[in-house]
Computed example of a mutant assay.
Amino acid sequence: MAREIKRPEIRKNEIIDAAQKFFFQKGYEQTSIQDIIDALGIAKGTFYHYFFSKIDLLDQLIDRTTSEICSSLKPILNMDMNAIEKFNKFFQALTVVSMQNIDVFLVTFKVMFRDENTIIRVKMYRRMVDKNTPLFSSIIEQGIKEGVFNNPYPNDAAELLMQIGANLDETIGRLILHENETLKHLAKIMVQKIKLYLDAMERILGAPKDSLRVYILDDYEEMAKMFYKKLRDKEDV
């Protein structure tokens, strides 16, 4: 039987989609290139036409995922807003995405925090920092010009905030997945960590106190309830 010929971008994305499924189900280390080839019914040469190795495939999967997230946030840079409004809008948009795609995020949390997927998690965070830093830096530069931020190193400040944010995400992710975590404690710790991050943001940027509202705390309390309920499959939380 003749093999189906597909456009390069379609075939490449099919391979990435299959890899994502295997990486999530089996873990990166436990997935072989042969697993992916067999699942798609393609020749080994087809795989190596698009990817040099499994690590190259992982890099391109992470790049595609982070690019999709960043693309959804870029329009905020061109909105008619001052820097603080843009900063708040940027982070609040991420919260909305999380709330709208809670089932996807739950699967991602479960997979990303497996020991065998440590390499995926580290690479994902690094790629997010690299891609979002220029966006943050642009907003910080605008804030410096407007006189609302007081930090002479916008790019370094943006990268530092992204790194702290990645650490916050990991802390919250581990809390959400902890089997013995109570809803009350989960919501309390999430809000506490977010308040600490807000304070760090304002100090690093030299922004007026209480000017940043990048997280809507009521939304995060509601998100904690949603995560808790779905993970534990309870009707009443």
Results as ranks from 00 to 15, higher is better:
K12F: 03
N13A: 14
N13S: 15
E14R: 11
E14N: 13
I15M: 05
I16T: 09
I16E: 09
D17C: 09
A18W: 04
A19M: 13
A19W: 05
Q20S: 15
Q20W: 12
K21Y: 12
K21G: 04
F22N: 03
F22M: 06
F22L: 07
F22D: 00
F23L: 08
F23P: 03
F24C: 07
F24P: 00
F24Y: 12
Q25W: 05
K26Y: 00
K26A: 03
K26P: 01
G27Q: 03
Y28P: 00
Y28F: 15
Y28V: 06
E29P: 01
Q30R: 15
Q30C: 14
T31S: 11
T31W: 04
T31Q: 05
T31V: 10
T31D: 05
I33T: 07
Q34A: 13
Q34V: 10
D35W: 00
D35H: 07
I36T: 03
I36C: 03
D38Y: 11
D38W: 03
D38K: 14
D38A: 14
A39Q: 10
A39E: 13
A39L: 06
A39F: 07
L40Y: 05
L40M: 09
I42T: 02
I42R: 05
A43G: 12
K44W: 01
K44T: 12
G45W: 01
G45I: 03
T46K: 02
T46Y: 04
T46G: 07
F47P: 03
F47A: 08
Y48S: 08
Y48G: 07
Y48K: 05
Y48T: 06
Y48M: 04
H49C: 07
H49A: 12
H49Y: 15
Y50S: 04
Y50L: 12
F51H: 02
F52K: 15
F52M: 14
S53W: 04
K54R: 10
K54T: 05
K54F: 00
I55C: 08
I55P: 09
I55K: 14
D56G: 07
D56R: 09
D56N: 12
D56Y: 05
L57K: 02
L57N: 01
L57T: 02
L58E: 06
D59Q: 13
D59T: 11
Q60E: 12
Q60C: 03
Q60K: 12
Q60W: 09
L61E: 08
L61V: 13
L61H: 10
I62Y: 04
I62G: 01
I62D: 02
D63R: 13
R64D: 10
R64T: 05
R64V: 05
S67Q: 11
E68M: 07
E68G: 09
E68Q: 13
I69F: 12
I69V: 11
I69W: 07
C70K: 15
C70T: 15
C70P: 00
S71N: 15
S71C: 08
S71G: 10
S71Q: 14
S71F: 10
S71I: 08
S71M: 09
S72F: 11
S72P: 06
L73F: 14
L73P: 01
K74Q: 13
K74H: 09
P75M: 13
P75N: 11
P75L: 10
I76T: 06
I76A: 01
L77F: 03
L77S: 02
L77M: 09
N78P: 00
M79E: 15
M81P: 06
M81Q: 11
N82K: 06
N82D: 14
